[in-house]
Design a protein around this nucleic acid. Sequence first.
DNA 1: AATACCTGTAACTATACTTATTACATGTAA
DNA 2: TTACATGTAATAAGTATAGTTACAGGTATT
Lengths: 144, 144
Amino acid sequence: MMSISSRFAVGIHILALIEINKDGVSSSEFLARSVNTNPALIRKIMGMLKKAGLIEVNPGIAGAKLSKELSDITMLDVYKAVHVVQDNELFKVHESPNIECPVGRNIQDTIEPLFSTAQLAMENILGKVNLEDIVKDIDKKVEH
Amino acid sequence: MMSISSRFAVGIHILALIEINKDGVSSSEFLARSVNTNPALIRKIMGMLKKAGLIEVNPGIAGAKLSKELSDITMLDVYKAVHVVQDNELFKVHESPNIECPVGRNIQDTIEPLFSTAQLAMENILGKVNLEDIVKDIDKKVEH
DNA sequence: AATACCTGTAACTATACTTATTACATGTAA
DNA sequence: TTACATGTAATAAGTATAGTTACAGGTATT
């Protein structure tokens, strides 16, 4: 039973915490305490978020900042940033089926459009939610 | 980069081939030649399809038959049958975040509905395609 | 009953990805 | 110079997949 790497969930956690802690300094050590993992792991994921243009962070200088508006960062952006699933490869197809069999010869071309559509439907949902939605929801839960 | 086990694609392959070869005998050895893998692996997947009520197959007797109408077997049925993804666990959440942090305490409850909705959107697409669609598409490709 | 062949399944291997961890090179500022 | 930060490589343990061998047990034919 596979599941999509928690890098995605951790990436969202990092971004939300940077925002909610925007008046403080969000070092990898600070973020790691909240996620409850190792600072090195946080820095690896921060590197991915940085490369995707979602955060600004500099060597030697403590703390990270968001580099876009909250509403301009969708969950799909985070998902793509942390490289948990490759485009059009959520579903694995079996390699080298027997091309002498009519089914073996055609099955891949038949199911790939379905797999692609299913993956895109999932990713489309992620694109509809942005970091502002996430942060507001957390704020609402904190008040209660 | 994770992807969903090819058991799903192989399961679809098996079912389509059983149908297209319905006048012949679809033994695990025959199916394995088309998929281009080991008969034991095919039997393992056939066991899952059988347990899900999609095919009929008996010890000692060569060949498998579909146990439902073509249009009554959706790709979602196959997906569930081969246990490639657990309900509501397509996306992994990081375990035991720090509950002393407002984000750590609430992030899971905030993102889980999103993860669940995204997974269901994907699965919903799979439920819209049935084995008849697949077989017709293969037949069409074979004619050309 | 003996045989031949099938399914069902356990056991083992190789491979690959994830997560956690250590270590250290490099950058920054007091 | 120091203290501390980020960036990143290397390693290890855990887990899932895919491939393979082996064999127990069922069925049908001779």
